[in-house]
Simulated assay, not measured.
Amino acid sequence: VLLLAPICPHICDYIYQLIHPQTTIMNAKWPQGGKIDQKLIDSQNHILNSAHDFRLRLTAYKTQQSGNKSKGVPVQPPLHPTHATIFIARSYPSWQIFVLNQLKELYLNNNRQVPDGKTLAQHFKDRPEIDKKYMKKLMSFVIYSRDLLEKTRDIQALDRHLSFDEYEVLSNNEDYFRRTLNIEQVDIRLIDENEIEAASIPNLEEILPGKPLIHFRYEPMISIRLINRQSYSGHFEWTIPMINGDTVEKLEQRLRRHADRTLRFSKTIRLFYFRISQFHSRKLPSMDIPLEDLVELTNKQQVLQVDLKHETVVSEQQDIGNALVYFVE
């Protein structure tokens, strides 16, 4: 109320008197700011910087998709990716851990003075502990670590590169990344260079603490209709994408995202399919018996398949067509 008072003083004064009877907001003091939460600021900046980098990589991905041009072949518009995987490093790669440990030793042996760039360049030149393929990135990382040490004067700062839990922060904002990239699903994975799966990840050396890497992919999908049979409900028919392997719960979430605000914040959505999907459009629905000829998908974790040839949904090896019914409660 105090913060809004300069903009709408009269209504704020009225609300203030409801909270504090027999007083006026005109005599109230401006609120004092509390202690600055640097961890919160750092995590917010990391989210914004990561989202910016992801958008640039999305543009590069789409450009690459449309880059293959052949004479006489019409250029197809690039396919927008449906999925993305964000890789987060558990720790520094082994060569960077070696650099950090060497910096600590140099700092302690030099009476806690940070060595200059020339000394560091000479110290790390042609070190057998560092693979030659990392030499181009070596000095930029050394200078970055040196500046961090010079700023904090604390060797522990080299271990505490981030003031927040990177995996937790990105996981809590998974929905934001999905919306800002306009894709259907985002997966977040912790990765270590020693893991067997890491060998199959392109550009693994780019994944560092505080510098996640995103990979995009496209999975074929079909469009399905979701019809509402409730009388006087005000809910419309929607067409949403469906991907092979979607669960019933994912379909509900996608319906909420694609639909209007009233459906987005509704408490319960129930999904049904037609008992005989081929003839549902030839029969008028009964408003007195809205659930007639419908079978409910009660298991939220049930996995649904997609028949790309016929563009229909398959539930437990049964073709249930490309039209479902939803009820809102």
Rank of each mutant, 00 (worst) to 15 (best):
K29N: 10
I240E: 01
D154T: 09
K211R: 09
F236A: 14
I41L: 11
V325S: 04
H161A: 13
F54H: 03
F216K: 00
F274D: 01
H10R: 10
Y134A: 07
G321P: 03
Q253A: 10
K133L: 14
K29A: 10
N109F: 09
S163I: 06
R275K: 14
L18D: 04
L106R: 09
Q64V: 06
P81H: 03
Y16I: 04
I289Q: 08
N109M: 14
R261H: 14
N228P: 03
N111W: 08
F265N: 13
N49V: 01
M221P: 00
I183D: 01
E174Q: 15
L291K: 05
Q278M: 09
W95Y: 09
D288R: 12
S315G: 00
Q64P: 00
Y176V: 08
H280I: 10
N49A: 09
I191S: 12
Y167V: 09
I240P: 02
L120P: 03
K125E: 15
I269M: 02
Q76E: 13
L79D: 07
D175S: 10
V73L: 15
M139T: 07
N109R: 14
R225F: 13
A5K: 05
E166Q: 11
T312W: 01
V142M: 05
D260V: 06
Q44V: 07
G234P: 04
K300L: 11
L103I: 05
P9S: 08
N203D: 14
I243C: 05
V295D: 05
V73Q: 13
Q64W: 08
R160C: 12
G33F: 02
F98Q: 03
V75P: 00
F164V: 10
T312K: 01
G210I: 01
S50L: 01
M26N: 13
L40C: 07
L204Y: 07
Y144P: 00
I25G: 02
D187K: 11
L18V: 05
D192F: 15
